[in-house]
Each structure stands twice: as C-alpha cells, then as structure tokens.
Nucleic acid binder design. Structure first.
Lengths: 340, 340
DNA sequence: TATAATTCATAAAACCTTTTAATAAATGAA
DNA sequence: TTCATTTATTAAAAGGTTTTATGAATTATA
C-alpha cells in the first residue's frame, strides 16, 4: 500500500510554521512577507521530501482543474493524432493536462462531450467544431470559457481560431496542376458547409475562373463516407465526366478512396489522370506513383493553438482577447501532378 | 460570466433537508435510511436544476480522480491512436476520463510521466512499457496502483497485461509465406529486448526450424529509426544476403522503410521478393502490389484492456487480481506474399 | 515616550463533497 | 409506563489547498 502522501499541514507542523506561511512560499507570494530565512528553510524541506501539492485540493480551492480539452474530429486520423502528439507535450510543459476526444463531426455527440467536460470543469476548450455548432460555441463563450477553434471556424462568431489558408492553398494546388499540363480538373469534396471545405472549394473556383477552365465538382455526402460508398460516387463521377484529366481531392481520405477507384479502373497516373490531395499522408509518399499533396503545417498549428489557449487562460477574467491565425499550407510536389 | 454553479449545500438549503440527506440520496445510500418521500423530493429537484457534483471536491474527499492514464509508445502511430479512440469511449461510458501520452519508448521520459501522473493522482495506469522499466512497474504495484500493461510485458513481474500472440502470429505468417513459395525469408526487426519483439523473432525461428530453412535476421538499432537510417540498413542487408527471396518485417514502420528501399532498387514484389509485415496499415492496402500483413485485433485489445482495468479499479483494496489476455492476430492475405 | 509604519506570521474561512457518529422520533416489547 | 429497537435525519469532521483579515513584534517618526 502506498504510504500516506505528505501535505502542506505536515510541512507546517514539522517546521513549526503556519500553513499559510508554507503556502505563500510555495506560491511565490512570500516576497516582503516572509523572512528570507524561513523561505529558505521551507524550500529546502519541500525539496527534501519531494512535496507536490494535491492538485484536486488546489483545483477545488481555485476553481481551476488545469485540464484543457482537445476535441478533434477523429483522434485516429493522422492529421489530428499528429497534432495531438505535439499539443500533449506543450500542455505538460505548461502545467496542463490534455484530454482528447473525437467528435466524429456529430453535433449531438460533441454537445454531450462539452457537457461532460463542463461537469468536469476543464479550464479550456480547443475544438474542431462540427456543423450546427455555432450556438454551443456562443454558449461556451458567454459562460466565459476559453475557447479556441481550429481547422475550421464560424464567421458569425467572434472567437479565436487557428486555421490554414484553405482558399489560397487550394488555389496554389490547382494552379500547380494547370502548370503541370492538366486542363480539366475535377474537384472531389464533401457536401459540407464547414468553413474549411467551403474555402477549399472557393480556392478551386478561383483558379478555374482565372484559367478559364470548366468547373467539375463532386460533393460526397458525409454519411456515405461511413458507408464506404465514396468509391462508387467517385466512379460515377468519372463516368459522367469523361473528359476529366485530373482530380483534386479536398481531404486525404477522399483521395485514398479515389486512388482505390483509379487503381481498380486501371487509370494511369499521371499520364491519363493527374492527382492531388489536400492534406498529406504517408500513403501518398509510398504510392506508385507518388502523390502530390498540399501539406498542412502540423507544428505551427500546434504551436499557435497552445499559444492562444495559454494567452486566454492567463487573461484576467472578462478581458477576453480574440486571436486569429491563418497559416499557410505548403505544396509537396511528387509524381502524380505533372503530365509526362 | 458563468453563473455560480449549484452545490449540494444549495440543494439542502432550498429543500430544508441536510447536506447529508442529499448526499446519501445522490450516492444511492438512502435505502432504509431516508423516507421515500424525501428521496423523491430531492431527486426531482436535482433533475430540475441539473445539478452535477463537483468532481474535484469528490476527488478530494474520496481520494479518487476518475482519471485513467493511457501511456502508449506513440499516439500518432495508427495502431495506438486507433486503440486510443476506442479506449476513450469506453472510459467515458464508465465514468472515467482518459489521459493519453506518448512514451517514445524512452524509459526516462516514461518515468517522468509516471511521476507527473502520480502527482496528479490518476486512478489507474495502462502502459506500453519501454525496456528497462521493470523496476518502475514494480514500484507502482507496490504502491497499490492498478496497472495493466499492453502490447508487451515483463516475464519477471506478475502484472496484468493484454498482448497478442506474437509468436504464434509470426509463425503463422512465415508459414503462409513458405506456402506461398518462398524459401529464403529474411526477418527485419528491431534490436530490442521487448517481449513482443522477442516473441516475434521466436515465431520466425520456429517456422524456420520447422521447414528447415536458413535463418536471416536483420536487427535494426532503435536509434537508427529516428535517424531514418533504417532504409540504408535494409539495403545493406539485401546486398549482404543476395539469395533472399522474401522479407518479413516485424513492425509496420519497418515495412514502410523496407518498401521504400525495394521501390528504389526496383525489386519486383511478389515475383522477385515476397513481403509481409506485422501490424496492418492503410499503406499496405493501397500499395502496388498490395502488401499482406498480420493484423492485430484493435477492438478486442481495447475491450480487454478496459475490462481488466475496470476490474482492478473495483477490486477491494489489497486483494489484487492479475489477469492476462493473449489475443490472436489474423492473417490478411494480399498480393505480396504469393509467388506467381 | 507615544504613535505610526513596517515586517513577519498566522488563524480561520472557503472551496464541495463524503462519511462517521450522534440525535430525535416513532414503534415495539415488557 | 419504561426501556429497547428501529427509522429518519443531521451535525460535524475530514480531505488539502488558497486567501483574507488580523495580530504581534519590530523599527521609524513625531
């Protein structure tokens, strides 16, 4: 059995000082109040016995749990799990715990989770919100909770967020494909009103307009993603639009479905069909041919997210500062996007 | 600003009963103590105002934090993040929070993390331990902490664990390759004393012995993994052992490195070289040709892990029960393991 | 010398819950 | 009626911390 944990009371008793004195010293509030001599004595003893404050008691008293929750769409997706990995470290470095969970892009599930975390009194929320989640975010903000959105955001709410420049990135990608010799580029995306998807579509349209090309968009229903019907839809899209010479996929899992279809149909990449994807993946690097992608800056995203969250957490109550960050994506050019 | 949270005291005051009464009712300890009438009254009011107990206060009083920590080798690895995703849900279903972190297979880092979690008084530890971690596990057990190891374990310690049948699975895989027509199968693994790696090697040796084949093992130094030197070593291995007609990789990231090399050297799979990997991956499904793999039963692992952890948590103190689970892996046969 | 200001230290309240031990009321037995 | 038992309820302690308000001792000022 574990030996009893040492408490601040034990220390006070042992050193013949008051609890208050110890607490002040522990919290760096001893300046000018407690004599150097006593400070040293306490500090030495604390170090000697390896005392660590009971975080539950601390939390109870201060109302803070030192927990940040990180709600991503799907923790088993490489993009999100990579960021999580980085966030986790940053959180610990700053004295916070990070709790993860997957929203599955389901507003009700996300709502339930938020309620759960409220009950558990987390200190801050970092969220990739599903559609139809504006009201819940507003609610959180009204309650004075620190909130940072990422990957997507809501124009209608003034809330801190970290996103990448989806429009410009997509534009850049399509431009690259045009320069690679493709003229009839299809855009495969989700039937989603989320900002990141809308912006990617806008980037595509912008490039299409600029180069005076024909717009070809396939919007896949989100539910079909789970049914694995995605491939069928891509196939139908290819049949319907015979003259396509390239495909741009708005997410990496769409691209993977697409690659399966192209493989099945024995469409040659990049000669018959150019291919690019938003969001890089290990698969693209190993595929034959290798697949070009628009890579998201994982480290910068994680950096920014934690930076903003910490700022919010340290903000004197009420005086909230909204911070936006829009980070650039980078083109990873491989074999699939240049017409031989 | 958030309106003040309602507390048990508020309820007691409002209903003119004592705090104790409310607490008993809330904790289902009212049977035979409190009158039905009062019970109903309190329950209704609680529901009406949506009262939820303050978990920090609860934790402080009971000494429980309702937090389980899940320490995996690398949360951004698909195998671990997939399991995490499942564990997360199970934990919440059972009233626990799940904290994740990555050990990076570094004993010192893991040690630091464990200390951190001790300070934060988590209730249970699920760990993929790095090498040289026996003593730390023993220590945890001595302190009466619920511990479940997974993916690997220590023979020298009697501690609950969930692993897959690494030896049998590898044996099965090698057997499959032999049946696929390969006679000179190289085994690429890590220079590691961890049980799962040792068992995989043993499974290989067992098959080699059975079929009276020549053993060819490449052990890659763990540090070289990070330096991305893995490919060079695989290449040197191929050069040194010219007559190899197949490779079995003991982890999926080794396989990915290997595939890069084979691609670079333009070795034809499966005609010139058969390939299989322990642990499946999306990459293997999309690679050309598709790569056969030994797939680990993610759901069963997560089920078992949580089941055992919950049993330990609910065990009356001191009366610990050690539970082992060894789950079978399954062969996923694709194109890379059958000689044309 | 008396008083004000400064320095050092602490008691006690508060955070919210669980649980032990005690009390009060009602019932049953003698 | 009286004592014992059961039933219904509660006061108070404990868990470990932070923080406000207060007190005592020392030094400076008038």
């Amino acid at each position: 059995m574990s030996k009893k944990r040492i408490s601040i009371t034990d220390i006070a008793k042992e050193l013949n000082v008051s609890i208050t004195t110890v607490s002040f010293i522990l919290n760096n509030k001893a300046k000018g109040k407690i004599s150097e001599e006593v400070i040293k004595k306490v500090q030495n003893y604390v170090k000697e016995v390896g005392y660590k404050p009971n975080q539950l008691a601390q939390g109870l008293r201060t109302g803070k749990s030192n927990i940040i929750v990180f709600m991503v769409e799907d923790i088993s997706d490489a993009f999100f799990s990579s960021i999580s990995r980085l966030m986790e470290e940053k959180a610990y470095e700053n004295g916070y715990k990070l709790l993860f969970c997957s929203t599955e892009n389901d507003a009700q599930k996300t709502r339930d989770l938020v309620q759960l975390f409220k009950d558990r009194q987390v200190d801050g929320y970092i969220i990739t919100p599903p559609s139809d989640f504006e009201e819940d975010i507003k609610q959180l903000l009204q309650e004075g909770q620190p909130v940072v959105l990422f990957d997507r955001y809501f124009e209608s709410i003034d809330v801190s967020h970290v996103i990448i420049d989806n429009m410009e990135s997509t534009f850049k990608s399509i431009k690259h494909m045009v320069e690679g010799g493709y003229r009839n580029i299809g855009f495969v995306t989700l039937d989603s009103s989320q900002s990141q998807m809308v912006d990617r579509l806008n980037g595509y349209q912008k490039a299409i307009d600029l180069y005076d090309l024909k717009s070809n968009v396939l919007e896949i229903n989100f539910k079909d993603l789970k049914n694995k019907k995605t491939g069928d839809q891509v196939e139908a899209f290819l049949n319907k639009t015979q003259d396509l010479d390239a495909l741009f996929f708005a997410t990496n899992y769409l691209a993977k479905s697409g690659l399966r279809v192209l493989k099945k149909l024995q469409v040659a990449i990049p000669s018959q069909m150019g291919v690019m994807s938003f969001d890089d993946s290990e698969v693209f690097e190993l595929y034959s041919p290798t697949i070009s992608a628009l890579s998201q800056p994982i480290e910068s995203i994680a950096d920014k997210l934690m930076e903003i969250m910490l700022k919010q957490l340290n903000m004197p109550d009420g005086k909230e500062k909204i911070i936006y960050a829009e980070l650039p994506g980078s083109l990873v050019v491989r074999e699939s996007s240049y017409k031989p």
